[in-house]
Computed example of a mutant assay.
Amino acid sequence: MNRVKTALARLWKRLLAAVCVVACICSVAACGSGDETGKIRIGIKFDQPGLGFKKSGTYVGFDVDVAKYVAKQLGYSEDEIVWKEAPSKQREAMLQNGDVDMILATYSITDARKNAVSFAGPYFVAGQDLLVRRDDTSIKGPEDLNGKRLCSVTGSTSATTVKEKFANEVQLMEQPGYAECATALFSGIVDAVTTDDIILAGLASASRGKLKVVGKPFTQEYYGVGIKKGDKAFAKKINAAIESMIKDGAWQRAVEDNTKGTGYKPNAQYNPPKPTEGE
């Protein structure tokens, strides 16, 4: 009898343990699915100094500052923002799949992209430029690219521009992020990195004087807030928030704070822009 009782006790403990495991799994799953309830999910870059950069568990940069301002105007505090990494080639899919509510990730507004998603904004106008090693005097502008090796990011408008304008002149290496491009430039694998001037300014600052921006932009890139296609009401609210940020001086402060020490100045002919996209 004692043996039977002992066996039953062991079985009962095992059943309790199994129930607890299942309960814990269900609880974790429920917590995971509920973490984002009542919050706004915003896609940003995690690897762009001065724009969208993940640093010791926090997020800093101009795109981040604009995103925080817009979120606040929409009724969300900073602790109600869920930050998600938005690599260039994944941005459209993230919006289409509902992984994020909006994306602020140096996301240039183009007709091709508007076939898949909609935009609010623009909130900034950059220009594509070139980043070279500090001691390089052979590249002073796009006219000096013949025979050079360039690096840009897969899925970016910068890579598309190089293919369209300089396909017969340069050898293009595409990388998943600009950190990889900067590494290739440091090591001499490429001669220059090309993307928007404000991105390059952040990379130059992070290089501690080893890299420099050429300073001859050759495009205009209108940064928009990516949203789900056709959501005009949301676009109108975001545009109103950007307009408010520009009017109260927060936009200018964000530009200055995030480009301090780089010598970068946004093109006053285009900045600050009028946010009317998507309405």
Results as ranks from 00 to 15, higher is better:
Asp144Ile: 07
Phe62Arg: 01
Asp35Ala: 10
Asp136Tyr: 09
Arg149Glu: 12
Phe234Trp: 13
Ala235Phe: 15
Ala120Ser: 07
Asn97Tyr: 10
Asn168Asp: 13
Val117Gln: 02
Ser207Met: 05
Ile81Glu: 03
Ile42His: 11
Tyr223Asp: 05
Gly75Met: 09
Lys165Ser: 09
Val190Asn: 09
Asn97Gly: 01
Thr58Phe: 08
Gly215Cys: 06
Asp231His: 06
Tyr264Glu: 05
Ser88Glu: 14
Gln128Gly: 11
Met94Arg: 04
Thr262Asn: 05
Gly52Cys: 12
Gln96Leu: 12
Lys13Asp: 06
Thr276Val: 14
Glu174Thr: 00
Ser77Phe: 10
Gln252Glu: 10
Lys13Val: 12
Lys228Arg: 09
Gly249Glu: 14
Gln128Lys: 10
Gln252Ala: 14
Asp231Tyr: 05
Asp135Cys: 02
Ala86His: 01
Pro217Gln: 04
Ser138Arg: 03
Ala116Trp: 04
Lys68Glu: 07
Glu277Ile: 01
Lys5Arg: 08
Ser77Cys: 04
Leu104Gln: 02
Thr194Ala: 09
Arg149Asn: 12
Thr259Leu: 08
Glu277Leu: 02
Leu11Val: 12
Lys232Pro: 08
Glu164Val: 12
Ile199Asp: 10
Asn239Glu: 11
Val60Ile: 14
Val4Gly: 01
Ala120Thr: 03
Gly38Leu: 12
Phe62Gln: 01
Pro176Thr: 00
Ser108Asn: 02
Ala93Cys: 02
Glu256Gln: 09
Ala7Pro: 03
Thr262His: 08
Leu95Glu: 07
Gly34Arg: 05
Gly127Glu: 06
Pro176Trp: 03
Asp111Arg: 10
Tyr107Trp: 06
Glu256Ser: 08
Phe234Val: 12
Leu211Met: 15
Ala86Asp: 00
Asp196Gln: 12
Lys236Arg: 12
Ser33Gln: 11
Pro272Ser: 06
Val19Tyr: 12
Pro272Ala: 06
Asp196Thr: 11
Ile189Glu: 01
Gly224Gln: 02
Arg3Trp: 08
Leu104Ser: 01
Pro217Leu: 05
Tyr264Asp: 04
Phe166Lys: 08
Gly263Asp: 05
Gln171Ser: 06
Met102Thr: 10
Gln96Ala: 13
Gly141Thr: 06
Val4Gln: 11
Ala206Met: 06
Ala179Ser: 00
Val4Asn: 07
Tyr69Ser: 07
Pro122Ser: 03
Asp197Met: 07
Ala233His: 08
Glu92Lys: 08
Asp144Asn: 12
Asp191Pro: 11
Lys165Glu: 09
Ala18Trp: 14
Ser207Gln: 04
Ile109Gly: 02
Ala254Gly: 13
Cys24Tyr: 04
Leu145Lys: 02
Ser138Asn: 02
Glu80His: 15
Gly226Phe: 10
Thr195Val: 15
Ile139His: 09
Ala184Ile: 02
Ser205Leu: 14
Thr154Lys: 15
Thr157His: 13
Glu279Ser: 04
Thr160Val: 13
Gln73Thr: 06
Ala116Ser: 07
Ala204Ser: 14
Val82Thr: 13
